[in-house]
């Protein structure tokens, strides 16, 4: 990973000097992880494109006059925007994982 890992922070500089092998090990570990992520990304992409391409074949086509229930607010994925914003903000500041539902919303210094 980047050579600048050891810049900016004196603690980091010191640690970097202490054992170069450890840094090497970390770097290899991260590369393996990156490969794993890319592999999973590819699987997900294949799945997504299959879903997209076979969209019309998935289930029987629902007709417009059958969509009264689907139009109800509780059947949408958006939900209560202010509620979602508060809830996601709390989880992203208390847990390691975050995101997934959409883009936008902004960051904060809480995590």
């Amino acid at each position: 990973m980047g050579e600048n890992n050891c810049s900016q922070h004196s603690g980091r500089k010191k640690a970097g000097r202490m054992n170069l092998f450890s840094k090497e090990k970390q770097s290899i570990g991260e590369k393996t992880m990156n490969r794993e992520i890319i592999k999973k990304s590819c699987y997900a992409l294949v799945l997504m494109s299959m879903l997209g391409l076979s969209g019309c074949a998935l289930g029987t086509a629902v007709q417009p006059w059958e969509k009264e229930t689907l139009a109800r607010p509780e059947m949408t994925f958006e939900g209560d925007k202010l509620d979602n914003a508060f809830t996601e903000h709390i989880y992203s500041s208390k847990e390691g994982a975050s995101g997934g539902a959409g883009v936008g919303g902004g960051g904060c210094g809480c995590n």
Binding site: G55, G59, T60, V62, E66
Partner: peptide
């Protein structure tokens, strides 16, 4: 991808 499967 979002997909309507049935009316429900």
């Amino acid at each position: 991808v979002t997909r309507v499967l049935t009316p429900q």
